[in-house]
Design a protein around this nucleic acid. Structure first.
Lengths: 341, 341
DNA sequence: CTGAAAGCGCTTACAG
DNA sequence: CTGAAAGCGCTTACAG
């Protein structure tokens, strides 16, 4: 059986309360007693039972990370590894543990979150991504539970969140293609129910509009964040009577799918089609040709989200509700040629 | 304040014990009472406080994952995303939550584990990777705490573990190069303190020996699991008066570093140097040329580790202490040409 | 400065 | 079938 506070108290000849006080560095405790207790603590190899501690203190020193539903697919995209890397690094530094859950179905997902939140298993929660009118957000709000959203919510603009300016980022990516002389620019979007898809689409359209360039519905394709998505988009585009000469892809993995498809069909990038992706994952630098990509600071997003959440949990003042991580276009070969018109 | 068992009991006009019994589907409870209680449970939106539950039941429904020290670097390698993907999927399916910790220093690392284990925060632990005489393993053993090692331990061959046959895998990878006609074969290893590095080195050497091919110390380089490692190894090899014509790299990312360096210097793969990596991450298929890689079933390793641990935690009989996930060489262009000798 | 007591929210023998 | 009671390991007013 593990050593408890009572064991220590007995051996040290004091009361459990005193041991507890020594443990929490209570100010009014005599140095002599403290020393004695500490000695026994060490001697017996005492370690607090966190469950008991949490039960009374109502605090867990743990943050929860809710993974968007299909964890299966999730990690196929580097985005998540990278966010988690940021989160885990920062939370570890602050002495917090990280708890992860998912559910396979929407119901399971909500159940998992309920378990964490109502079961008082974590002090706060990081929500990864947001869907249109995400039920999780309402849930958190209802329960007054601390959380930070990675992304943006239309319905609740005023919650704690860490995000990019995705409209602007997509605008900038599109601008870049326009600056290269492209007049027919396509967009491979993500799942339409994700806010980020909408935001980037908006930026893309705005850039076209501002440049007085035509936006054609058939140059916009929706998919997910997987390679096949890019592959399919590519075959679609290339069969068009008038096909785009430039393409903005919502994710590098998708861009990669496009690139791969093109290469297989004997097309050249950037000559036949110029390409700009998002996320600047290692893949984009390493592919042939290297893919231009909008770096959105994923690691920093994770790091900041964790930091923000932990501050909120501790009740520290939040300078701002919404933190925007800057983006920056990394131009590479895949978009570096003037369109031939 | 959250709803407790007492609130429910009052409203239902029964004792807390009864509510608890209904909750745990105790057999000897009258259908009428059960129905009544369940109704109130729903009405009040009751959810158990997991801390309290854990405190008495001494069980947490959570498994812990200990990340090898530098989480910072960790996720740069796809291996980890992929293992975690396997772990998280399986644990979620079984209704277990996943807790992750790291420490920056060895002391912090041990502290984190102590917190999990002695604080009774998790029911069992997955250890990722093992170093020579890993202090964590002794720690677990000492405390009789359930754990499964991903990897192998020299000192404790008899612990629960999930692993590949890394000796055989490296043997097979090397054999493949030999079969392609190579006589000068190099090896880029990982950190020498990792068991896996040693195992693969051994397989590599054995394959050479069995084929009667010379093994030269200068054809073996040690590094870590990052790209630079491959890059450095490459420059070293290519400056050798007699350089290898084939190379086994301990990890695809490393192989990628080699490939990249070669390409920059104007060398051709596989013509100037044939390449075989390990892990079969997506990168290897997508690079130019695609890299031959030993698929070690990373996802399955994670999945199996979680499964094994949870079984152990539940006290189910373990058919075998050590589970070996099969490997399989995926041959691609990077190694598909006969050496010119 | 320190102890006795109550309590966090749950479970589980022990009676009946 | 059901309740009263003790207890899991800790913290924290309340006294002194």
């Amino acid at each position: 059986m593990a050593i408890t506070i009572v064991d220590v108290a007995k051996k040290a000849g004091v009361s459990p309360s005193t041991v507890s006080r020594v443990l929490s560095n209570h100010p009014r405790i005599s140095p002599a007693t403290a020393a004695k207790v500490r000695e026994v603590l060490k001697e017996l190899g005492y370690h607090p039972n966190i469950m008991a501690k949490s039960l009374v203190s109502k605090t867990t020193n743990t943050i929860g990370l809710i993974l968007p539903r299909p964890a299966e697919e999730l990690f196929l995209n580097l985005f998540f590894s990278e966010v988690i890397r940021g989160i885990v690094t920062q939370s570890a530094r602050t002495g917090y543990d990280l708890m992860m859950t998912t559910g396979t179905t929407e119901r399971e997902e909500l159940e998992a979150v309920t378990r964490l939140v109502k079961g008082r298993r974590v002090d706060g929660v990081i929500l990864l991504y947001s869907r249109q009118s995400d039920p999780l957000i309402s849930f958190m709000l209802e329960h007054g539970f601390p959380f930070v959203l990675i992304g943006r919510s239309d319905d609740f603009p005023d919650i704690l969140s860490v995000d990019n300016d995705n409209v602007q980022a997509a605008y900038d990516a599109t601008r870049h293609l326009i600056a290269q002389g492209h007049k027919r620019i396509g967009f491979v979007s993500g799942p339409p129910n994700l806010i980020v898809s909408g935001d980037r689409m908006k930026g893309y359209l705005q850039a076209l509009k501002d440049a007085g360039i035509e936006a054609r519905p058939e140059w916009i394709v929706e998919g997910d964040f997987l390679q096949e998505s890019g592959y399919r988009a590519m075959s679609f585009f290339m069969c068009l009577p008038e096909r785009p000469t430039g393409l903005v892809a919502i994710d590098d993995v998708v861009a990669f799918g496009v690139l791969r498809g093109l290469t297989e069909l004997g097309y050249k990038v950037p000559d036949d089609l110029s390409l700009v992706g998002f996320n600047n994952i290692s893949l984009s630098e390493l592919s042939t040709p290297p893919i231009s990509s909008m770096d959105i600071g994923i690691y920093q997003i994770g790091y900041t989200a964790s930091q923000t959440l932990i501050r909120a949990v501790k009740g520290e003042a939040m300078p701002q509700k919404r933190v925007i991580i800057p983006h920056r276009l990394i131009v590479r070969e895949s978009s570096l040629i003037q369109a031939k018109d």
